[in-house]
Amino acid sequence: MAFQIRRLLYGDIPGGETGGGPANPQPAPDSSEWPLWEVFIRSRQGLDHKHVGSLHAADARMAVENARDVYTRRMEGVSIWVVESRHIHASQPEEAGPFYDPAADKAYRHPTFYDLPKEIDHM
């Protein structure tokens, strides 16, 4: 079974081609497929919106309505955000090492770095 694999790896995170560069505001002119949207849901008041998945929709309004039908059939949300996938910029997994390196040797940023007397160790 031959699949046409596009190197534009969008969906969960957008394609490498746009990563870091300016997002292209226009859809590809010949595209007959509805654009892809990422869906974020706040499950209840007081919590952050959290990425739950993606879907296709012709515009933002349809994306919100589809997100309601696909991702909140059991009252999973009180608020929905949608953003077109191509507008998301992401860090590069292959650079993960050096990218996060500055935080690696700073144990003193954690409370457990400090030894305190037993009497006040719950501080």
Partner: peptide, 23 residues
């Protein structure tokens, strides 16, 4: 309706591998 939703979750997961829904 759930089954339609499940199909969509799965198509979306497949699309993260770089294949289009239309294909």
């Amino acid at each position: 309706q759930d089954e339609a939703g499940h199909g969509l979750y799965l198509y979306a997961a497949a699309e993260t591998l770089g294949v289009s829904r239309a294909t």
